[in-house]
C-alpha cells in the first residue's frame, strides 16, 4: 500500500501510575492508559473523546513527551523516541499543546512578545527574524501585531486563547494537541476559536489531536474520532462512522446522551456502577454498564480492536451482532 508514513503512530502505549500503596503490600496501579494504538495522518484532526478520567490527557502528555510511558512506542514520522525522553528542545518541535483555560495557562507577568520570543530564542532564532515570526504568528491567529507588548490581563478570554494558540504554533510543531480548547470559552467566542483552528489547519497544514467533551465540537472539527474508555480505545473511525454508525455500545450511549436543541429525546440510560480505575472490571471494561453485555463479556481475555469496515475499528465481542440491519458486519 502506498500510504505515506503517518505523522504520529502510537503502538501499545501504556501509562500506569502507582497509587497510594497502603501500609501493607505493593501500591496499586492506576492504568490511566493501557494499550493504546493510534495513528495520526498529516493534516488530520483526530478527535479524542471519553469520560472524565479515561486517560485522554495522560495520552496527550505522553505524546508531548511530558509523561514517560510504562510500555509501548510513540513514533513521530516513523522515528521512535522523538518525543519521549528526548531533550526539551527536540521535544518542543514534535508536539505542542493548547490548554483549556486561557486564564491560568499564560504567565501573567510576561508580555505576549516575551511568551512567543522565549521558545524562538531557545531554538536559535535571532535578530529581526524573531520580530518577523512573532508578527506573522499574531496575524495568523487574528491579533494585531501591535498588541505584542501587552500583558495577558489586558486581553479577553477569546484573545487569550488566540495567544495560547500562537504559543503552541510558534515553533511549527508537527503535532498540535488541543485539550478542551474551547470549553472554557463563551458560546460566541467558541465559534471564533473553532473557525480559527480550522483555518490554521488548512493554511499551515497542521495535524491535531483534539480532546473535547463537546461532541458537537468534535463532529464539526474532526476527520477521525477515537473513543476511549478506561484507558483503552473502544472505537475509532471516520467522523461519519462514529456519529452516524456508532457500533460500540459505549459510543452509542455517548451519542444518545447529547442534548439536541431541535429534537427532544429521552436519553439512553446506562446502568451499573461508575468504574473504579484502580480495579477495572474483568474482560470488556465496559461490561458492568453495558446494556448489551452477555456472560462472555465478563471473561478474559478482553476483546481486541477489530476492523468492522474500512478504517472503522471496534473493541466489542458483540460487534457483528450489533450491526444495524442492512449493514454487513
Amino acid at each position: 500500500m502506498a500510504e505515506s508514513t503517518p505523522i504520529l503512530r502510537i503502538e501499545d502505549l501504556a501509562v500506569h501510575f502507582p497509587q497510594g500503596g497502603g501500609l501493607f503490600g505493593a501500591p496499586r496501579m492506576v492504568r490511566a492508559v493501557d494499550g493504546v494504538d493510534l495513528t495520526l495522518a498529516r493534516g488530520e484532526c483526530l478527535g479524542l473523546v471519553g469520560e472524565s478520567g479515561c486517560g485522554k490527557s495522560t495520552l496527550a502528555l505522553a505524546v508531548l513527551g511530558l509523561q514517560p510511558p510504562t510500555r509501548g512506542r510513540i513514533l513521530v514520522e516513523g522515528v521512535e523516541g522523538a518525543a519521549a525522553g528526548a531533550a526539551r528542545k527536540a521535544r518542543a518541535r514534535v508536539a505542542q499543546m493548547v490548554f483549556q483555560d486561557p486564564y491560568s495557562s499564560l504567565n501573567p507577568r510576561q508580555s505576549v512578545r516575551r511568551t512567543l520570543e522565549a521558545p524562538l530564542r531557545l531554538h536559535g532564532v535571532a535578530g529581526s527574524e524573531i520580530d518577523d515570526r512573532i508578527a506573522a504568528m499574531l496575524k495568523h491567529v487574528g491579533l494585531r501585531p501591535e498588541l505584542a507588548d501587552r500583558y495577558p490581563h489586558e486581553f479577553s478570554g477569546g484573545q487569550r486563547q488566540r495567544i495560547g494558540i500562537a504559543r503552541a504554533l510558534i515553533l511549527e510543531p508537527r503535532v498540535v494537541v488541543l485539550d478542551e480548547p474551547v470549553s472554557a470559552l463563551d458560546v460566541s467566542i467558541r465559534a471564533q476559536i473553532i473557525n480559527l483552528l480550522l483555518d490554521l489547519k488548512e493554511r499551515l497544514g497542521l495535524s491535531y489531536i483534539m480532546i473535547s467533551h463537546d461532541l458537537g465540537v468534535v463532529e464539526h472539527m474532526s476527520d477521525r474520532v477515537a473513543v476511549m474508555y478506561l484507558g483503552r480505545i473502544v472505537e475509532t473511525g471516520d467522523w461519519r462512522d462514529i456519529f452516524a454508525r456508532p457500533r460500540h455500545p459505549y459510543t452509542r450511549a455517548l451519542i444518545a446522551a447529547i442534548p439536541d436543541p431541535f429534537e427532544k429525546k429521552r436519553t439512553m440510560r446506562m446502568t451499573g456502577e461508575v468504574p473504579n480505575p484502580l480495579a477495572p472490571p474483568s474482560g470488556c471494561r465496559f461490561h458492568p454498564r453495558c446494556p448489551e453485555a452477555r456472560e462472555a463479556c465478563r471473561a478474559e481475555p478482553a476483546p481486541q480492536l477489530e476492523t468492522i469496515a474500512a478504517g472503522h475499528r471496534v473493541r466489542c465481542l458483540r460487534a457483528a451482532e450489533l450491526a444495524p440491519a442492512g449493514e454487513t458486519a
Partner: peptide, 28 residues
Amino acid sequence: AGLIASLPLLGARARHGRARLQEIEGVV
C-alpha cells in the same frame, strides 16, 4: 439568532457539510 448560529450542531455537518460557524462580533 446569533447564539444559535454560533453552535456546532450535532448532525449539521452530516446533513449540509461543514459550514463556517457564525461569530458574534465584539464582547459583552
